[in-house]
Simulated scan of single mutants.
Amino acid sequence: MHTLLSQPAPAAGPRPPLVFLVHGGPADHDRDAYDPQVHSLVASGFAVARVNYRGSTGYGPRWRTAYAEGVGLAQVADLVAVRADLLRRGLAREDALGLWGTSWGGYLTLLALGTRPGLWRAGVAVKPVADCAAAYRAGTPALRALDERLFGGTPETVPDRYRRSSPLHYAADVRAPLLVIAASLDAKCPPGQVRGYLAALRAAGVAHESMWLATGHDGYAGADHMAVLRRALGFLDRHLRPAPAAHQAPRFPESGVSGSTGPSGAPGSHDPNSVH
């Protein structure tokens, strides 16, 4: 399974925290090329793993349709397999592993935190799918068609498949600190299903933070991008660094963005028919 590993310059002391930067799509793949989000993480002292899990493009039709364990669950299994391999090779520390994903990547982040709660120390989900059935009902016609292909039907015809693959079903099982960043005008990952997921976290007493952007799903104004980057890096810094050697994330210019809640990205979609 192809995984791109980016690491900061070697330094004395323990290995740096490692963040799984989970790509969206699902019809997309990470490339061995410059990525500003990877750059920001590495410059802040984090190692970064990018996994081209099953469902990614670039590996042929069999790889794109290999969902044997179920929608999302197959991809989480791939992230877990890479996590185990990195630990076996001594390239990561079990006490400093986090997840960060946007859109479908945010969905996989939430699903991994809920279905494999003992494996991660922090998670950041940006504009995610959090409730598969609710996202289907509030989504665009193109996204409903995509869901019907992936799940083999609608929430009414195959409800168990939607429930089994939905982060909402596992919200009470989340144990790692979680930051959810959502957009109030998002048509691809609608805000209502994110609010329902946040309500489930609150009802279960799960520690989490949230931030809301007054934007749609795709793209960022410069101020929004900086606000998300600063909030996410600060959150990961607090939860993945050992307390005695706490590291201060780089200071970013003030964005002027308002509307966040709680103690706050990635590029938008390339394909209008994909969640990304």
Rank of each mutant, 00 (worst) to 15 (best):
V51F: 03
A68I: 08
G45L: 01
G55P: 03
S56M: 04
A68Y: 09
P36L: 11
Y59A: 12
P36I: 07
A49R: 01
R31M: 13
G55D: 01
S56N: 06
V51K: 01
F46W: 04
G55A: 07
V51L: 07
R62G: 14
Y53D: 03
S40C: 10
Y67I: 11
A43D: 12
S44C: 04
R62F: 15
F46S: 00
S44T: 04
A47I: 01
R50S: 07
R50V: 02
A66K: 06
R50F: 03
R54K: 09
R50L: 05
H39E: 15
H39F: 14
A33S: 15
N52S: 09
G60V: 06
G45S: 07
R31Q: 15
V38C: 03
T57F: 05
A33W: 12
G55F: 00
A47K: 01
S56V: 04
R50E: 06
S56I: 03
V42Y: 00
Q37H: 14
P61Y: 08
A68S: 12
G45H: 02
S56R: 03
R54L: 06
R54N: 05
T57I: 05
Q37N: 14
W63F: 12
A33Q: 14
G45E: 02
R31N: 10
V42E: 02
A33F: 10
V51W: 02
A47E: 01
P36A: 12
A68R: 15
V42W: 01
D35N: 13
S56H: 04
G60S: 08
N52H: 07
A33G: 08
Y34H: 12
R62Y: 11
R64F: 10
F46D: 00
A47W: 00
A49H: 02
A33N: 12
Y67M: 11
L41W: 02
Y67H: 13
R64W: 10
R50K: 12
V38Y: 02
P36R: 11
N52C: 06
D35Q: 07
D30T: 14
W63A: 06
Y67R: 14
A49S: 08
G60K: 08
R64A: 13
T57P: 04
P61D: 09
W63H: 13
A68G: 13
F46A: 01
S40M: 11
D30R: 12
Q37C: 11
G55S: 05
A66C: 10
N52V: 04
Q37E: 14
S44I: 00
S40D: 13
S56Y: 04
G58W: 08
L41G: 01
G55M: 01
D35A: 08
H39D: 15
S56D: 05
S40W: 07
S56F: 04
D30W: 10
R64P: 04
A33T: 12
Q37G: 12
S44L: 02
V38F: 03
G58K: 08
A49I: 02
V38G: 00
R62L: 15
A47F: 00
Q37D: 15
L41R: 02
N52F: 04
G45A: 06
Y34P: 12
Y53N: 06
T57K: 05
A68Q: 14
